[in-house]
């Protein structure tokens, strides 16, 4: 029983990341009709906003400590962050410690700007081109972004821990009446799940309860008709692209303490997120979220050693297997609109 609860928790946590990325992918596909293979790169860039902010907050000045020596036997150079000088060691240290949550605020304008530049600078030229062209150009863009990040930050993962307050695990075993230590789950992963729920809720509320959202939803249904009503739907769709970029970026920022950021992390999530979108139904926002969590949980269960012993290799193919089954039985996806991608 403990194992099942743990795998459900794992699945929800993994599914949160899938759902957030898939949500952005679906928004872009639903509004602009573009299959954006650079979306994983936006997730990765979000994680590197956290890395960058931590580095910026840690910018230091050097002093020589004559009492200590470095690896070459020279007097040790000691670095002291400016924030610790300006705000005192305690407050300054706390600011650096909270770099990841602070990066959420910083990432919103940065990711929106990146999204707008990406859309205006490149992707809009491919609206009327076939999906194959869109995939090629966005995939190329993803590789370019990856290489830029690698050139600046190197290829190895960069540890970006959560604030000290969230280090450690919560013992669900004691809470649920099982043995102590039987269901341990890291605080930060619980925070991530909560954060994802808030972001998903906010996007849905924005689309459901604002005039802007209503116009966007109308545009997703019938772009031409909304245009004929004199509404500049293109401008709104650009904003939606920026919002999708922000959602992916925020997902990446908060994921940095879970998976030490590296330049390739976006690509690892992208493929799975596309499967999530297809299973959920192209263009369906609830479908993307539901499929994200569903596939996250399924993948977690398939990674249990008991399951792998029964069906070797199932952990690596389960998501694709589910995608094949769903597409065979229901080509439009679980919650896809009739007629979308059914050909």
């Amino acid at each position: 029983m403990e194992a099942i609860i743990l795998q459900i928790l794992n699945g929800l946590d993994k599914g949160s990341a899938y759902a957030l990325i898939a949500l952005g992918l679906t928004l872009i596909f639903g509004t602009l009709g573009v299959v954006n293979f650079a979306h994983g790169a936006l997730f990765m860039m979000g994680a590197f906003v956290a890395v960058t902010l931590k580095r910026v907050l840690s910018i230091s000045f050097d002093t020589i400590d004559e009492t200590r020596i470095d690896f070459l036997g020279n007097p040790m150079v000691v670095s002291t962050p400016y924030v610790e000088v300006w705000f005192g060691p305690s407050v300054g240290g706390t600011i650096i410690d909270w770099a990841v949550p602070l990066a959420v605020i910083v990432a919103i304008p940065i990711m929106a700007l990146i999204g707008i530049i990406m859309e205006r600078g490149l992707i809009r030229h491919f609206y009327k081109r076939p999906h194959a062209d869109q995939i090629l150009v966005t995939f190329g863009l993803a590789i370019v972004l990856q290489e830029i990040i690698k050139a600046f930050y190197g290829a190895n993962p960069i540890p970006t821990p959560s604030p000290e307050a969230f280090i450690g695990s919560y013992d669900f075993g004691v809470l649920l009446g099982f043995d102590p230590f039987s269901i341990m789950y890291p605080y930060w992963r619980l925070v991530y799940f909560g954060f994802a729920a808030v972001i998903i809720g906010a996007v849905f509320a924005f689309l459901r309860f604002t005039t802007f959202g209503m116009v966007v939803r109308a545009g997703m249904e019938d772009r031409e008709m909304v245009g004929l009503l004199g509404i500049d739907i293109d401008r709104r769709f650009v904003i939606m692209f920026a919002i999708a970029a922000v959602v992916a970026g925020l997902a990446g920022v908060m994921y940095a303490p879970i998976l030490s950021p590296n330049y390739h992390m976006g690509m690892d999530f992208l493929v799975l997120s596309f499967v999530v979108v297809v299973v959920g139904g192209m263009g369906s926002l609830p479908g993307a979220v539901a499929a994200g969590f569903l596939l996250g949980v399924l993948q977690s269960f398939a990674s249990m050693s008991e399951i792998i012993e029964l069906v070797p290799g199932i952990n690596q193919v389960v998501i694709y297997l589910v995608a094949v089954i769903v597409l065979l039985i229901r080509p439009r996806g679980l919650l896809g609109r009739k007629g979308v991608m059914e050909d």
Binding site: A3, L6, P159, M184, L259, S260, Q299, S303
Partner: peptide
């Protein structure tokens, strides 16, 4: 694999008291 949570969570209830990570590179880090 990136996220090893699915592989790590069963360890706690397996009866083991040592985990040996035969991983290198990014896998070891994660």
């Amino acid at each position: 694999a990136g996220d090893f949570s699915s592989y790590l969570t069963p360890v706690a209830n397996s009866g083991a008291d040592v985990l040996i990570l035969n991983h290198y590179g990014g896998d070891m880090v994660n």
